[in-house]
Design a protein around this nucleic acid. Structure first.
Length: 469
RNA sequence: GGCGGCAUAGCCAAGUGGUAAGGCAGAGGACUGCAAAUCCUUUAUCCCCAGUUCGAAUCUGGGUGCCGCCUCCA
Protein backbone atom coordinates (compact mmCIF):
# COMPACT_ATOMS: atom_id res chain seq x y z
CA UNK A 1 0.00 0.00 0.00
CA UNK A 2 1.30 3.40 -0.86
CA UNK A 3 1.37 6.72 0.87
CA UNK A 4 -1.64 8.98 0.53
CA UNK A 5 -1.55 12.65 1.44
CA UNK A 6 -4.24 15.23 1.91
CA UNK A 7 -3.56 17.78 -0.78
CA UNK A 8 -4.76 21.29 0.02
CA UNK A 9 -4.84 22.04 -3.67
CA UNK A 10 -7.68 19.59 -4.20
CA UNK A 11 -8.82 19.27 -0.62
CA UNK A 12 -8.83 15.54 -0.92
CA UNK A 13 -6.62 12.69 0.08
CA UNK A 14 -4.61 11.53 -2.91
CA UNK A 15 -2.17 8.73 -3.55
CA UNK A 16 1.29 10.22 -3.39
CA UNK A 17 3.17 9.52 -6.59
CA UNK A 18 6.41 11.47 -6.98
CA UNK A 19 7.13 13.10 -10.31
CA UNK A 20 10.29 11.08 -10.66
CA UNK A 21 10.10 7.54 -9.44
CA UNK A 22 12.08 6.96 -6.28
CA UNK A 23 12.87 10.60 -5.74
CA UNK A 24 10.90 13.24 -3.83
CA UNK A 25 11.36 16.98 -4.04
CA UNK A 26 10.14 18.57 -0.84
CA UNK A 27 10.25 22.24 0.14
CA UNK A 28 9.31 23.35 3.62
CA UNK A 29 8.97 26.97 4.65
CA UNK A 30 11.60 27.65 7.26
CA UNK A 31 12.03 30.22 10.00
CA UNK A 32 12.60 33.93 9.82
CA UNK A 33 15.73 34.10 11.90
CA UNK A 34 15.03 37.16 14.02
CA UNK A 35 14.36 35.34 17.29
CA UNK A 36 14.23 31.94 18.95
CA UNK A 37 11.50 29.75 17.55
CA UNK A 38 8.64 28.73 19.80
CA UNK A 39 7.07 25.38 20.43
CA UNK A 40 4.31 26.15 17.93
CA UNK A 41 6.89 26.79 15.23
CA UNK A 42 8.46 23.50 16.22
CA UNK A 43 5.39 21.55 15.16
CA UNK A 44 6.07 21.72 11.42
CA UNK A 45 9.77 21.18 11.96
CA UNK A 46 9.15 17.96 13.84
CA UNK A 47 6.14 16.73 11.98
CA UNK A 48 7.58 17.22 8.49
CA UNK A 49 10.88 15.82 9.70
CA UNK A 50 9.00 12.65 10.47
CA UNK A 51 7.25 12.67 7.10
CA UNK A 52 10.60 13.03 5.43
CA UNK A 53 12.10 10.24 7.52
CA UNK A 54 9.15 8.02 6.71
CA UNK A 55 9.55 8.55 3.00
CA UNK A 56 13.24 7.78 3.33
CA UNK A 57 12.38 4.67 5.30
CA UNK A 58 10.21 3.62 2.40
CA UNK A 59 13.26 3.83 0.18
CA UNK A 60 12.60 7.18 -1.46
CA UNK A 61 15.40 9.64 -1.96
CA UNK A 62 14.15 12.89 -0.48
CA UNK A 63 15.62 16.22 -1.50
CA UNK A 64 14.44 18.27 1.41
CA UNK A 65 14.89 22.02 1.28
CA UNK A 66 14.08 24.34 4.14
CA UNK A 67 14.96 27.99 3.78
CA UNK A 68 16.05 30.67 6.19
CA UNK A 69 14.32 34.00 5.72
CA UNK A 70 17.09 36.38 6.64
CA UNK A 71 15.80 39.66 5.23
CA UNK A 72 12.41 41.20 5.96
CA UNK A 73 10.79 43.84 8.18
CA UNK A 74 11.11 41.79 11.34
CA UNK A 75 14.79 41.19 10.69
CA UNK A 76 15.43 44.88 10.08
CA UNK A 77 13.49 46.02 13.13
CA UNK A 78 15.13 43.56 15.46
CA UNK A 79 18.62 44.29 14.16
CA UNK A 80 18.02 48.01 14.64
CA UNK A 81 16.78 47.44 18.13
CA UNK A 82 19.83 45.38 19.00
CA UNK A 83 22.18 47.76 17.28
CA UNK A 84 23.63 45.09 15.04
CA UNK A 85 23.47 44.41 11.34
CA UNK A 86 20.84 42.21 9.77
CA UNK A 87 23.63 39.82 8.80
CA UNK A 88 24.83 39.53 12.35
CA UNK A 89 21.29 38.93 13.56
CA UNK A 90 20.78 36.20 10.98
CA UNK A 91 24.06 34.48 11.84
CA UNK A 92 23.16 34.46 15.47
CA UNK A 93 19.66 33.05 15.10
CA UNK A 94 20.56 30.54 12.46
CA UNK A 95 23.01 29.13 14.99
CA UNK A 96 20.28 29.21 17.64
CA UNK A 97 17.89 27.54 15.25
CA UNK A 98 20.28 24.66 14.70
CA UNK A 99 20.94 24.33 18.39
CA UNK A 100 17.24 23.85 19.13
CA UNK A 101 16.32 21.88 16.04
CA UNK A 102 19.24 19.51 16.57
CA UNK A 103 18.26 19.10 20.19
CA UNK A 104 14.75 18.21 19.06
CA UNK A 105 16.17 15.49 16.85
CA UNK A 106 15.20 17.22 13.61
CA UNK A 107 17.32 15.95 10.75
CA UNK A 108 19.15 18.63 8.86
CA UNK A 109 17.67 19.44 5.45
CA UNK A 110 19.45 18.56 2.25
CA UNK A 111 19.76 22.28 1.56
CA UNK A 112 19.12 25.29 3.81
CA UNK A 113 19.29 28.27 1.50
CA UNK A 114 19.20 31.87 2.68
CA UNK A 115 17.27 34.55 0.85
CA UNK A 116 20.17 37.01 0.92
CA UNK A 117 22.39 34.53 -0.88
CA UNK A 118 19.95 34.17 -3.76
CA UNK A 119 19.48 37.71 -4.99
CA UNK A 120 20.45 36.76 -8.53
CA UNK A 121 17.77 34.09 -8.70
CA UNK A 122 15.18 36.32 -7.08
CA UNK A 123 15.88 39.25 -9.38
CA UNK A 124 15.85 37.12 -12.46
CA UNK A 125 12.52 35.60 -11.47
CA UNK A 126 11.04 39.06 -10.98
CA UNK A 127 12.45 40.08 -14.31
CA UNK A 128 10.71 37.23 -16.04
CA UNK A 129 7.44 38.28 -14.42
CA UNK A 130 7.89 41.86 -15.54
CA UNK A 131 8.71 40.77 -19.07
CA UNK A 132 5.66 38.57 -19.24
CA UNK A 133 3.42 41.36 -18.03
CA UNK A 134 2.66 39.83 -14.64
CA UNK A 135 4.49 42.50 -12.68
CA UNK A 136 4.89 46.24 -12.86
CA UNK A 137 7.29 48.79 -11.49
CA UNK A 138 6.09 51.81 -9.51
CA UNK A 139 8.85 54.09 -8.26
CA UNK A 140 11.23 51.22 -7.68
CA UNK A 141 8.64 48.97 -6.06
CA UNK A 142 7.68 46.00 -8.17
CA UNK A 143 4.26 44.44 -7.69
CA UNK A 144 2.73 41.24 -8.89
CA UNK A 145 -0.40 41.89 -10.90
CA UNK A 146 -2.91 39.40 -9.52
CA UNK A 147 -5.44 40.12 -12.23
CA UNK A 148 -2.95 38.93 -14.81
CA UNK A 149 -3.02 35.49 -13.28
CA UNK A 150 -6.51 34.05 -13.73
CA UNK A 151 -6.14 31.17 -11.33
CA UNK A 152 -5.16 33.42 -8.43
CA UNK A 153 -6.99 32.01 -5.41
CA UNK A 154 -6.51 28.30 -6.14
CA UNK A 155 -5.26 27.57 -2.67
CA UNK A 156 -7.53 29.97 -0.84
CA UNK A 157 -10.42 28.58 -2.91
CA UNK A 158 -11.69 32.09 -3.31
CA UNK A 159 -12.02 34.47 -6.18
CA UNK A 160 -10.38 37.88 -6.18
CA UNK A 161 -13.70 39.49 -5.35
CA UNK A 162 -14.32 37.23 -2.41
CA UNK A 163 -10.84 37.76 -1.09
CA UNK A 164 -11.28 41.48 -1.29
CA UNK A 165 -14.49 41.82 0.62
CA UNK A 166 -13.98 42.32 4.28
CA UNK A 167 -10.24 42.41 3.98
CA UNK A 168 -8.73 45.06 6.16
CA UNK A 169 -5.80 45.91 4.01
CA UNK A 170 -4.86 49.50 3.69
CA UNK A 171 -5.17 50.36 0.07
CA UNK A 172 -2.08 51.54 -1.67
CA UNK A 173 -3.34 53.71 -4.48
CA UNK A 174 -0.31 52.98 -6.61
CA UNK A 175 -1.32 49.34 -6.88
CA UNK A 176 -3.60 48.24 -9.67
CA UNK A 177 -5.44 45.84 -7.43
CA UNK A 178 -5.51 45.83 -3.62
CA UNK A 179 -4.22 42.28 -3.54
CA UNK A 180 -1.21 42.96 -5.72
CA UNK A 181 1.79 42.14 -3.59
CA UNK A 182 5.36 43.35 -3.53
CA UNK A 183 8.01 41.36 -5.34
CA UNK A 184 10.65 44.01 -4.83
CA UNK A 185 10.71 46.89 -2.38
CA UNK A 186 12.60 50.08 -3.09
CA UNK A 187 15.31 50.89 -0.58
CA UNK A 188 14.41 52.96 2.43
CA UNK A 189 16.90 54.89 4.50
CA UNK A 190 18.93 52.65 6.78
CA UNK A 191 17.81 49.36 5.24
CA UNK A 192 20.02 46.75 3.65
CA UNK A 193 19.66 46.77 -0.10
CA UNK A 194 20.83 45.12 -3.27
CA UNK A 195 21.16 46.55 -6.76
CA UNK A 196 18.48 45.60 -9.24
CA UNK A 197 17.10 46.71 -12.60
CA UNK A 198 14.54 48.77 -10.63
CA UNK A 199 17.09 50.40 -8.39
CA UNK A 200 18.43 49.57 -4.96
CA UNK A 201 16.04 47.56 -2.85
CA UNK A 202 15.21 44.23 -1.29
CA UNK A 203 12.97 41.31 -2.13
CA UNK A 204 9.35 41.15 -1.02
CA UNK A 205 7.90 38.65 1.31
CA UNK A 206 7.05 35.71 -0.93
CA UNK A 207 9.45 35.67 -3.81
CA UNK A 208 12.36 33.98 -2.07
CA UNK A 209 10.56 30.69 -1.60
CA UNK A 210 9.55 30.46 -5.24
CA UNK A 211 13.04 31.35 -6.39
CA UNK A 212 14.88 28.99 -4.08
CA UNK A 213 12.44 26.15 -4.54
CA UNK A 214 12.90 26.39 -8.30
CA UNK A 215 16.66 26.67 -8.02
CA UNK A 216 17.20 23.63 -5.81
CA UNK A 217 14.30 21.42 -6.77
CA UNK A 218 13.17 22.45 -10.24
CA UNK A 219 10.18 24.26 -11.67
CA UNK A 220 7.75 21.62 -10.47
CA UNK A 221 8.18 20.02 -7.08
CA UNK A 222 6.35 17.24 -5.33
CA UNK A 223 5.61 18.62 -1.87
CA UNK A 224 5.53 22.05 -0.33
CA UNK A 225 4.70 22.28 3.34
CA UNK A 226 4.16 24.85 6.04
CA UNK A 227 1.80 25.95 8.75
CA UNK A 228 -1.79 26.39 7.75
CA UNK A 229 -1.50 30.13 8.28
CA UNK A 230 0.82 30.24 5.30
CA UNK A 231 -1.83 28.92 2.95
CA UNK A 232 -2.98 32.42 2.23
CA UNK A 233 -1.44 34.65 1.17
CA UNK A 234 2.10 33.28 1.30
CA UNK A 235 1.61 30.04 -0.57
CA UNK A 236 -1.03 31.45 -2.84
CA UNK A 237 1.47 34.07 -3.90
CA UNK A 238 4.21 31.54 -4.36
CA UNK A 239 2.01 29.64 -6.76
CA UNK A 240 1.15 32.79 -8.68
CA UNK A 241 4.76 33.93 -9.01
CA UNK A 242 6.17 30.60 -10.00
CA UNK A 243 3.46 29.52 -12.38
CA UNK A 244 3.15 32.90 -14.02
CA UNK A 245 6.88 32.80 -14.70
CA UNK A 246 7.25 29.22 -15.87
CA UNK A 247 3.82 28.31 -17.17
CA UNK A 248 4.25 25.02 -15.35
CA UNK A 249 2.67 23.59 -12.27
CA UNK A 250 4.68 24.73 -9.25
CA UNK A 251 3.71 22.28 -6.50
CA UNK A 252 1.93 18.96 -6.85
CA UNK A 253 1.01 18.42 -3.20
CA UNK A 254 0.46 21.26 -0.77
CA UNK A 255 0.37 20.14 2.84
CA UNK A 256 -0.23 22.27 5.90
CA UNK A 257 0.00 21.46 9.57
CA UNK A 258 -2.58 22.64 12.09
CA UNK A 259 -1.76 25.11 14.78
CA UNK A 260 -0.46 24.49 18.19
CA UNK A 261 -2.99 26.05 20.51
CA UNK A 262 -2.46 27.28 24.00
CA UNK A 263 -5.54 27.93 26.11
CA UNK A 264 -7.51 27.26 22.92
CA UNK A 265 -5.82 30.09 21.09
CA UNK A 266 -3.22 29.93 18.40
CA UNK A 267 0.24 30.21 19.86
CA UNK A 268 1.94 33.10 18.18
CA UNK A 269 4.61 35.64 18.67
CA UNK A 270 2.24 38.52 18.13
CA UNK A 271 -0.17 37.30 20.79
CA UNK A 272 2.71 36.80 23.17
CA UNK A 273 1.32 33.49 24.38
CA UNK A 274 4.29 31.40 23.37
CA UNK A 275 6.89 29.21 24.97
CA UNK A 276 10.19 28.97 23.17
CA UNK A 277 11.38 25.55 22.15
CA UNK A 278 14.49 26.32 24.14
CA UNK A 279 12.47 26.84 27.30
CA UNK A 280 10.42 23.70 26.68
CA UNK A 281 13.61 21.69 26.23
CA UNK A 282 14.85 22.88 29.59
CA UNK A 283 11.86 21.23 31.20
CA UNK A 284 11.12 18.27 29.00
CA UNK A 285 13.38 16.01 26.97
CA UNK A 286 13.14 16.04 23.21
CA UNK A 287 11.57 12.60 23.18
CA UNK A 288 8.59 13.94 25.15
CA UNK A 289 8.19 16.91 22.83
CA UNK A 290 8.44 14.75 19.73
CA UNK A 291 5.94 12.28 21.16
CA UNK A 292 3.60 15.13 21.96
CA UNK A 293 3.79 16.48 18.41
CA UNK A 294 3.15 13.04 16.96
CA UNK A 295 0.30 12.22 19.33
CA UNK A 296 -2.21 14.07 17.16
CA UNK A 297 -2.78 14.07 13.44
CA UNK A 298 -0.62 16.75 11.84
CA UNK A 299 -3.58 18.62 10.32
CA UNK A 300 -5.55 18.85 13.56
CA UNK A 301 -5.12 21.67 15.97
CA UNK A 302 -3.15 20.45 18.94
CA UNK A 303 -3.61 21.95 22.35
CA UNK A 304 -0.42 22.61 24.21
CA UNK A 305 -0.20 22.33 27.97
CA UNK A 306 2.28 21.32 30.58
CA UNK A 307 0.01 18.42 31.35
CA UNK A 308 0.09 17.16 27.78
CA UNK A 309 3.85 17.27 27.76
CA UNK A 310 3.92 15.40 31.04
CA UNK A 311 1.58 12.77 29.62
CA UNK A 312 3.77 12.37 26.58
CA UNK A 313 6.81 12.00 28.77
CA UNK A 314 5.09 9.24 30.71
CA UNK A 315 4.18 7.47 27.50
CA UNK A 316 7.56 7.69 25.88
CA UNK A 317 9.22 6.48 29.07
CA UNK A 318 7.05 3.41 28.87
CA UNK A 319 8.44 2.75 25.41
CA UNK A 320 11.95 3.43 26.61
CA UNK A 321 11.59 1.12 29.60
CA UNK A 322 10.40 -1.61 27.31
CA UNK A 323 13.46 -1.25 25.11
CA UNK A 324 15.75 -1.15 28.13
CA UNK A 325 14.13 -4.30 29.46
CA UNK A 326 14.62 -5.95 26.12
CA UNK A 327 18.27 -4.98 26.10
CA UNK A 328 18.71 -6.21 29.63
CA UNK A 329 17.24 -9.54 28.66
CA UNK A 330 19.48 -9.60 25.60
CA UNK A 331 22.53 -9.24 27.79
CA UNK A 332 21.56 -11.33 30.77
CA UNK A 333 19.13 -14.03 29.79
CA UNK A 334 19.85 -17.49 28.61
CA UNK A 335 19.26 -17.82 24.88
CA UNK A 336 17.22 -20.77 23.73
CA UNK A 337 15.99 -22.03 20.42
CA UNK A 338 12.61 -20.82 19.34
CA UNK A 339 9.64 -22.78 20.54
CA UNK A 340 7.86 -24.50 17.70
CA UNK A 341 4.56 -22.83 17.00
CA UNK A 342 5.49 -19.39 18.27
CA UNK A 343 5.90 -17.18 15.29
CA UNK A 344 7.35 -13.90 16.50
CA UNK A 345 8.27 -13.00 12.99
CA UNK A 346 4.68 -12.75 11.86
CA UNK A 347 3.53 -11.02 15.03
CA UNK A 348 5.98 -8.19 14.56
CA UNK A 349 5.47 -8.10 10.84
CA UNK A 350 1.80 -7.54 11.51
CA UNK A 351 2.65 -4.61 13.80
CA UNK A 352 4.94 -3.26 11.14
CA UNK A 353 2.21 -3.56 8.53
CA UNK A 354 -0.27 -1.74 10.71
CA UNK A 355 2.26 0.93 11.56
CA UNK A 356 3.03 1.60 7.91
CA UNK A 357 -0.64 1.44 6.98
CA UNK A 358 -1.33 4.20 9.51
CA UNK A 359 1.57 6.28 8.25
CA UNK A 360 0.50 5.70 4.67
CA UNK A 361 -2.95 7.02 5.51
CA UNK A 362 -2.19 10.70 5.30
CA UNK A 363 0.65 10.30 7.72
CA UNK A 364 -1.44 9.32 10.71
CA UNK A 365 1.20 9.33 13.43
CA UNK A 366 -1.33 9.11 16.25
CA UNK A 367 -2.71 5.83 14.95
CA UNK A 368 0.83 4.58 14.29
CA UNK A 369 1.77 5.31 17.90
CA UNK A 370 -1.18 3.21 18.99
CA UNK A 371 0.39 0.25 17.19
CA UNK A 372 3.74 0.96 18.81
CA UNK A 373 2.20 0.68 22.26
CA UNK A 374 0.50 -2.58 21.39
CA UNK A 375 3.90 -3.91 20.45
CA UNK A 376 5.30 -2.60 23.72
CA UNK A 377 2.73 -4.59 25.63
CA UNK A 378 3.57 -7.68 23.63
CA UNK A 379 7.24 -7.38 24.51
CA UNK A 380 6.53 -6.68 28.18
CA UNK A 381 4.28 -9.68 28.39
CA UNK A 382 6.80 -11.87 26.68
CA UNK A 383 9.57 -10.82 29.03
CA UNK A 384 7.33 -11.35 32.02
CA UNK A 385 6.05 -14.74 31.01
CA UNK A 386 9.40 -16.40 30.64
CA UNK A 387 12.87 -16.18 32.09
CA UNK A 388 14.88 -17.03 29.00
CA UNK A 389 14.95 -15.51 25.55
CA UNK A 390 14.28 -17.23 22.28
CA UNK A 391 16.75 -16.51 19.51
CA UNK A 392 13.78 -15.94 17.21
CA UNK A 393 12.36 -13.11 19.31
CA UNK A 394 15.03 -10.46 19.03
CA UNK A 395 15.39 -9.93 15.27
CA UNK A 396 11.76 -9.09 14.53
CA UNK A 397 11.42 -7.02 17.71
CA UNK A 398 14.61 -5.12 16.93
CA UNK A 399 13.45 -4.54 13.40
CA UNK A 400 10.12 -3.14 14.52
CA UNK A 401 11.45 -0.80 17.19
CA UNK A 402 14.35 0.15 14.97
CA UNK A 403 11.81 1.29 12.42
CA UNK A 404 9.98 3.36 15.04
CA UNK A 405 13.25 4.97 16.06
CA UNK A 406 14.28 5.67 12.49
CA UNK A 407 10.95 7.12 11.46
CA UNK A 408 9.76 8.91 14.57
CA UNK A 409 13.01 9.55 16.34
CA UNK A 410 11.69 8.21 19.62
CA UNK A 411 12.70 7.35 22.19
CA UNK A 412 15.93 8.78 20.78
CA UNK A 413 19.45 7.94 21.68
CA UNK A 414 20.34 8.38 25.29
CA UNK A 415 22.70 11.28 25.69
CA UNK A 416 25.97 10.60 27.40
CA UNK A 417 26.37 12.78 30.43
CA UNK A 418 30.00 11.94 30.99
CA UNK A 419 29.51 10.15 34.28
CA UNK A 420 31.89 7.31 34.80
CA UNK A 421 29.82 4.14 34.75
CA UNK A 422 32.37 2.09 36.67
CA UNK A 423 31.61 4.04 39.85
CA UNK A 424 27.93 3.24 39.36
CA UNK A 425 28.64 -0.41 38.77
CA UNK A 426 30.78 -0.62 41.90
CA UNK A 427 28.02 0.87 44.00
CA UNK A 428 25.45 -1.48 42.52
CA UNK A 429 27.67 -4.46 43.28
CA UNK A 430 28.14 -3.25 46.81
CA UNK A 431 24.42 -2.82 47.25
CA UNK A 432 23.80 -6.26 45.84
CA UNK A 433 26.16 -7.76 48.39
CA UNK A 434 24.44 -5.85 51.17
CA UNK A 435 21.05 -7.11 50.03
CA UNK A 436 22.27 -10.69 49.95
CA UNK A 437 23.38 -10.37 53.53
CA UNK A 438 20.04 -8.71 54.28
CA UNK A 439 21.64 -5.43 55.24
CA UNK A 440 18.77 -3.44 53.76
CA UNK A 441 19.71 -0.29 55.57
CA UNK A 442 23.03 -0.19 53.76
CA UNK A 443 21.34 -1.23 50.51
CA UNK A 444 18.84 1.60 50.70
CA UNK A 445 21.55 4.08 51.57
CA UNK A 446 23.34 3.15 48.36
CA UNK A 447 20.10 3.42 46.41
CA UNK A 448 19.70 6.94 47.75
CA UNK A 449 23.24 7.78 46.83
CA UNK A 450 22.75 6.54 43.30
CA UNK A 451 19.46 8.35 43.08
CA UNK A 452 21.26 11.57 43.94
CA UNK A 453 23.56 10.78 41.01
CA UNK A 454 20.50 10.50 38.78
CA UNK A 455 20.55 6.73 38.59
CA UNK A 456 17.39 4.69 39.01
CA UNK A 457 17.64 1.05 40.07
CA UNK A 458 15.28 -1.79 39.42
CA UNK A 459 15.64 -5.18 41.01
CA UNK A 460 14.49 -7.83 38.58
CA UNK A 461 14.71 -11.59 38.35
CA UNK A 462 17.40 -11.03 35.73
CA UNK A 463 19.49 -9.00 38.13
CA UNK A 464 19.72 -5.32 38.89
CA UNK A 465 18.93 -2.93 36.09
CA UNK A 466 19.83 0.71 36.16
CA UNK A 467 19.12 3.70 34.02
CA UNK A 468 19.64 7.39 34.17
CA UNK A 469 16.71 9.58 35.01
C1' G B 1 -19.28 39.09 4.66
C1' G B 2 -16.28 34.94 2.14
C1' C B 3 -13.40 30.39 3.03
C1' G B 4 -12.07 26.52 6.41
C1' G B 5 -11.33 23.46 10.88
C1' C B 6 -12.88 21.24 15.43
C1' A B 7 -16.59 18.98 19.25
C1' U B 8 -15.03 10.98 21.25
C1' A B 9 -13.97 8.69 28.91
C1' G B 10 -11.00 12.91 34.54
C1' C B 11 -7.04 14.51 30.72
C1' C B 12 -4.51 13.81 25.64
C1' A B 13 -6.10 11.38 21.25
C1' A B 14 -7.14 7.52 16.87
C1' G B 15 -11.34 5.83 14.48
C1' U B 16 -15.65 8.09 7.50
C1' G B 17 -21.56 2.35 8.05
C1' G B 18 -21.47 -3.18 11.58
C1' U B 19 -22.30 -1.75 18.56
C1' A B 20 -15.56 2.52 20.41
C1' A B 21 -7.14 2.02 19.09
C1' G B 22 -3.39 3.85 22.09
C1' G B 23 -1.37 6.95 26.02
C1' C B 24 -1.65 9.75 30.84
C1' A B 25 -4.09 9.86 35.49
C1' G B 26 -7.40 6.97 39.10
C1' A B 27 -9.27 2.31 41.54
C1' G B 28 -8.56 -2.96 42.68
C1' G B 29 -5.30 -7.18 42.25
C1' A B 30 -0.43 -9.90 41.11
C1' C B 31 4.78 -9.50 41.81
C1' U B 32 8.12 -7.24 45.62
C1' G B 33 12.80 -6.69 51.91
C1' C B 34 11.66 -1.51 50.33
C1' A B 35 11.19 0.82 45.74
C1' A B 36 10.76 0.80 40.66
C1' A B 37 9.31 -1.48 36.42
C1' U B 38 5.81 -4.83 34.52
C1' C B 39 1.26 -7.66 34.02
C1' C B 40 -4.18 -8.44 34.84
C1' U B 41 -9.02 -6.22 35.85
C1' U B 42 -11.77 -1.68 35.81
C1' U B 43 -13.69 3.65 33.82
C1' A B 44 -17.50 6.28 27.04
C1' U B 45 -25.68 6.50 26.17
C1' C B 46 -19.02 9.33 20.77
C1' C B 47 -22.19 18.19 21.70
C1' C B 48 -27.89 18.51 20.68
C1' C B 49 -32.27 17.59 17.43
C1' A B 50 -34.34 15.39 13.13
C1' G B 51 -33.54 12.15 8.97
C1' U B 52 -31.35 8.06 5.63
C1' U B 53 -30.20 2.81 6.72
C1' C B 54 -31.35 -3.87 8.80
C1' G B 55 -27.44 -1.08 11.25
C1' A B 56 -24.22 5.70 12.25
C1' A B 57 -19.23 8.36 16.43
C1' U B 58 -19.01 7.60 11.19
C1' C B 59 -23.83 9.74 5.83
C1' U B 60 -27.77 14.05 5.20
C1' G B 61 -30.31 18.46 7.13
C1' G B 62 -30.83 21.89 11.13
C1' G B 63 -28.88 23.74 15.70
C1' U B 64 -25.23 24.99 19.71
C1' G B 65 -20.24 25.89 21.21
C1' C B 66 -15.03 26.70 20.23
C1' C B 67 -11.03 27.97 16.83
C1' G B 68 -8.52 29.75 12.44
C1' C B 69 -7.51 32.33 7.53
C1' C B 70 -8.93 36.66 4.46
C1' U B 71 -3.23 41.65 7.75
C1' C B 72 3.24 39.89 9.98
C1' C B 73 2.65 34.79 11.82
C1' A B 74 4.47 27.50 11.49
Amino acid sequence: MGLTLYNDLTRTKEPFVPLNEGRVTFYSCGPTVYDYFHIGNARPFIVFDVLRRYMEFKGLQVDFVQNFTDIDDKMINRANREGITVDQLADRFIAEYYRDADALGVKRPTHSPKATEHMAEIISLIQRLVEKGHAYNVDGDVYFDVESFPSYGVLAKQSLDELQSGARIEIDERKRHPLDFALWKARKEGEPSWPSPWGEGRPGWHIECSAMSMKYLGDTIDIHSGGTDLTFPHHENEVAQAEAATGKKFVRYWIHNGYLLIDKEKMSKSLGNFLTARAALEQYPAKAIRHFMLSAHYRSPLNFSEDSLRQSLGAVERLENCLLDLDHARNHRKRVDGTPGSDHESVFRSYEDRFTAAMDDDFNTAAALGVVYEAVRTVNNYLKERSDLEESFLPPADRFFGMVETVMGIPGRVEEDGTDDSRIRDLIAERDAARKSRDFKRADAIRDELSAMGVVLEDTPDGVKWRRK
